[in-house]
C-alpha cells in the first residue's frame, strides 16, 4: 500500500469522530520505482494532507520531506522528487494501521489493509 492510499483512508468505527490519519505500524516496508510525473504531483499537492504524509513517510524510514510545505516549493526539482518518492514509491507491505481514537488495529498483509469492521463496530 502506497502512502497516497494511506493519505485517504480513515477509520470508520461507530462513534469515532476523527479516524484520520491512521497510525502506521511497520513490520516490513518496500520500495518500488515508478515514473516521475511532475504534473501529477503538482495537481496532487493541494489535495494531500501534508502532515499525515510527512509523519507516515518518517515512520517508513524516509525523512526528507519538510515539516511544512507550500506551493512555491513545487518549483524545486529536489522537493518534487522527494514528494514523488514518499507518495508513490514507499509501500507498507506488512504491519498495521491503527485507529487514532480507539487504538483498534487494522492488519496489513501482503500490502493489503483489512479494514473490515466487527459487528459491534458498525
Amino acid at each position: 500500500m502506497r502512502l497516497l492510499t494511506h493519505n485517504m483512508l480513515a477509520s470508520n468505527i461507530k462513534g469515532v469522530t476523527n479516524g484520520f490519519p491512521l497510525r502506521i505500524e511497520v513490520e516490513k516496508a518496500i520500495e518500488k520505482q515508478v515514473d516521475f510525473n511532475p504534473e501529477f504531483l503538482k495537481n496532487m499537492f493541494t489535495k494531500i494532507h501534508w502532515k499525515a504524509l510527512v509523519d507516515a513517510s518518517r515512520i517508513m524510514g524516509f525523512a526528507e520531506l519538510p515539516e511544512e510545505a507550500d506551493s512555491s516549493m513545487l518549483e524545486s526539482d529536489d522537493f518534487l522528487r522527494n514528494f514523488h518518492h514518499a507518495l508513490l514509491e514507499l509501500h507498507l507491505e506488512e504491519g498495521a494501521l491503527v485507529c487514532p481514537e480507539t487504538g483498534r488495529r487494522f492488519p496489513v498483509n501482503k500490502g493489503i489493509p483489512n479494514m473490515l469492521l466487527h459487528e459491534d463496530e458498525v
Binding site: M1, L4, T5, N7, M8, L9, A10, S11, N12, G19, F20, P21, M44, K47, I48, H49, G111, I112, P113, N114, M115, L116, L117, V122
Partner: peptide, 15 residues
C-alpha cells in the same frame, strides 16, 4: 488493494 465493506468505508478528502 483494500479489503473493506464499501458501505463502511472511511475516507478523507477529495483525492
Amino acid at each position: 488493494y483494500i479489503q473493506c465493506d464499501l458501505r463502511n468505508l472511511g475516507w478523507r478528502g477529495q483525492v
